[in-house]
Design a protein around this nucleic acid. Structure first.
Lengths: 219, 219, 219, 219
DNA sequence: AATGAATGAGTATTCATTCAT
DNA sequence: AATGAATGAATACTCATTCAT
């Protein structure tokens, strides 16, 4: 019996990645079997090995490619931003939007680090560190300029990332809120959380400028 | 040949829970084998079944007992709090402290819901909903009184819980910061995030009173 | 927790035999677990070993005691019978009646011989041979006297025993037929089968019994 | 490392069925382990699952296929038979012959019904019922025509089947008797048992009336 | 690039049996 | 005479992976 259904040639790899993403997202890496994955793709499990080298490598590549893409796009989103508040807002908007669009990749990259073999783990942690560093630097810059009020930059970095990343746990397209509303809600929480009003100016500016729009903002 | 080494009677169950907690925390439920667990406890894997009925039941009981305890202690922590800001601060302090003390239970209860069989899953989700509801009610109350500024209560609830729960991902006892500092950092982020200064008064009151201390607070 | 329900002292052994009989009858020896058996009796499985030495020994004793009893009662039932036809009728009546009353013992003694260890197997096969021999001798005697028509005594012995024993597979107390009717139906089949009419006289006797219609019928 | 020794492709399934048949016949379904079976076939036990889906399914298919074949061949053997006595003789001859040739399938189909899961059990019992019905109908027809003397058709059906099937318990090819002799011995027992002489004529008339049609039928 | 059949190690769970209490 | 907790081997079945075709 020759192949019945399932994809041919170059499309198969894409089907594997897509199905793998979904299965790992739903069941976890350890709980996903390659038989399941193959069935989803419409091939026999042995045939997977024409496209991947091991289960571990599949996970690693999914995660690595995701983080690389994340970094690439983040840097693009931050381009041209000067003030820390603008950078932070851009970071939040980018992060939330990206997470809504790619929640599976994002979730896996956060939850399956422990499933990576040591060498792969280190590679990924380094990449993830680069991403965290972007946020930490924005916070540090804002604090240095007196724009942000933050008790501890490290804690704030982790906390903000947690806050933002958490939405992969509940977001579903077509829910009660538009993507814009969700972005706005998170912007508000994060910017307020570091002592900025949503409009972008520091609630308390280091240079004590009782600027009018602040009063305006306060209503 | 009866028991040679290993634990005895009622202590074994406690050892199983403890080791199970650690192994699930570290490797995940699916990736933890009962052989590993038994080895950790110092008994044969078959002997586990003198204490548990299935692997699934062990997970379920760990999670259920944890959430029950969490709820019980939360309610105690909130006792006597009147104003929403006080309640929120108490919530944050309790949550962060509890999570530092019981990070494994907390982490598992959040990450292994998908490993629960449907019936168990429903039970746990209901319990977890009760916990989330406590926070949602505090936020709703604060918003109603004009004490909090929140774009969307539902989103804020999830976001705040994510933010707070995230620390199980990086907290290690004996780290750079004291528990108190960590609590304080989170209080600041959350209270500011909903538009409250750390001292507890609303930054902007709903009844537009350009009260002097607000200016003062802004320094 | 001390014993809750279940039998005490000398009654426990009887409960074990009874429950064992039923479980082996229903599921087979290999498929019956001692945990099941213990549960049925209302004790822990370890406690069984206060009464039995091994699972195998339990089977052996059930079977052995049954066959001994069967032999004892058969010999009583055959006492005083002189003519082969009377003996055969008595054998059938006894066998069928006994099998209806003790169908579990009977069934097990026939179906679980293969579960006996070699030594036990030999013991039982010897006993069973003694029982079969009773029937074979009756048949041989009847043939010798010209009372029975039988193609092969050995085959007839096995076939008749099969025929009679088969009712353990379908008999249920309180069914459509009375025990007497069932006995009668089997008497008819067996006696006719060896060429005797139900009234007990040989259809064709070696000593030419001058009954006219019998002669007529016989050829 | 791929297959080293052991069977290949489509032959493996046949080897599994054959070995399974023998092992279940000898030890019983519950007592046969898949390791044993795999060893017999010359593959690893996990490799069995390339051919069967579960142990239970293997049993079910062996039994189902056997009964289907049995029915098919029975119907062929009965073709062209008109008179009940001829049908009964053909039934006995077929049944005994088939049982000698396929004693393992036959034995299993009778002794392992209890090992079938409810759904499978029902399927098989229905098929087996169809076989029993063939015999019951022959007996009923013979009784209706006055050709057979039978106390109770239902009991006679079971008893005759028991009698005939019993030979799986002792028959061994190359024994003392030829197959033909064994068939003849059973024909005699059964036909006499229902009141027919081996030649095919009714032995008796209850009311000793040499009624013409009975005489006619009798030769 | 796919199949189907294999491997060998591993899975959760059950087993008969033992024995200190 | 019972318990409860242990053993060590076994159970059916699954796993990732390999490879001749």
């Amino acid at each position: 019996m020759a192949r019945t259904i399932g994809s041919h040639g170059p499309k198969t790899m894409e089907a594997i990645r897509k199905a793998g993403l979904r299965l790992i997202f739903e069941h976890g890496y350890a709980a996903m079997s390659l038989r399941q994955l193959a069935a989803e793709v419409g091939i026999q499990s042995g045939s997977l090995y024409n496209h991947i080298s091991t289960k571990q490598e599949l996970l690693f590549e999914l995660v690595r490619d995701h983080i690389n893409e994340l970094l690439r796009q983040l840097d693009r989103a931050l381009q041209g931003m000067e003030r820390p508040a603008d950078k932070l807002r851009a970071f939040v908007a980018f992060h939330v939007t990206y997470h809504m669009n790619r929640k599976r990749e994002v979730f896996i990259a956060n939850s399956e680090l422990r499933s990576l073999e040591p060498k792969n783990y280190e590679t990924i942690v380094a990449l993830r560190g680069a991403y965290e560093k972007r946020l930490a630097e924005i916070l540090a810059e804002g604090v240095a300029e007196g724009a942000f009020e933050v008790v501890d930059i490290q804690v704030a970095t982790f906390a903000i990332l947690s806050l933002l990343t958490g939405l992969t746990g509940w977001y579903r397209p077509g829910g009660r809120l538009t993507k814009e509303a969700i972005v706005a809600a998170h912007e508000k929480l994060v910017l307020s959380g570091v002592g900025i009003d949503s409009a972008g100016s520091a609630r308390r500016s280091a240079k004590p400028a009782p600027s009018p729009h602040r009063t305006a903002r306060a209503k």
